[in-house]
Amino acid sequence: MTNIETNNHNIVYDVEGLNLWYGDDQALKNINMQIEKNEVTAIIGPSGCGKSTFIKTLNRMIENIPIVRTSGEIRYHGKNIFDKSMRVEELRTMVGMVFQKPNPFPKSIFENVVYGPRIHGIKDKKILMEITESSLRSAALWDEVKDRLHDNAYGLSGGQQQRLCIARCLAVQPDVILMDEPTSALDPIATSKIEELIDRLKEDYTISIVTHSMQQAARISDKTAFFLMGELIEFDNTKVIFSNPRDQRTEDYITGRFG
């Protein structure tokens, strides 16, 4: 049996020597990095650099692709997530994920939010209602939808849908939220709302966000990791990365010389 204890130690994720292959193609090469509690870690890099692959490895969603192989360790609160005793279902309730394209279920707003709690055995209507309200409030969506909780989620705007997905993720009270380019399908106003939300959420959660926008990374993150061709080139405080990068390639990328 696994025992994931949310201890007081500040390191949430400790990635050590992580390699990943799609069949024969190596997508991640010897990644070493640590993600700390209540920080926003931005992961940047050109398309195909492995940033999406990396974030999907953190909750083992990448294993849905059958040809994927990994080596190395990812320790989540000290426990290797690739360990046999680690139950992927448990890991994923601790580590929520928000996707590139808003992907609510074609059900009501309420049903969407309580999906997680429900499938994990919470049936009490009153508790589910409380979860819905608190999750939607945390996702800054409650005031907009409180009168139409039983309407279909696809009636919401794109930005609202994405915040609903965040609320759905918060409903199981995770510890970490992984975001895979969460604003790339949204307009600037919806994007800024999500960014504000991330800023508030980091008080309670640890957030990792993949983004193709360097401005976004600079605006919202505490730490930034720069990936290039499957390698972690540089990982440091966001301020350092954007003002005084150590690696020439990081500088080339953030100054827009490629990518």
């Binding site: 049996m1 696994t2 994931i4 139950r87 279902e89 448990e90 309730t93 997680g116 709690p117 994990h120 055995g121 919470i122 508790i127 409380e130 979860i131 608190s134 199981v172 009270q173």
Partner: peptide, 20 residues
Amino acid sequence: KDNISVRETIQNNIKNKKNI
């Protein structure tokens, strides 16, 4: 307090589920 109990319930349920 409620929130903690939700987290705990979920975790316990997953642990006790046989996943057959």
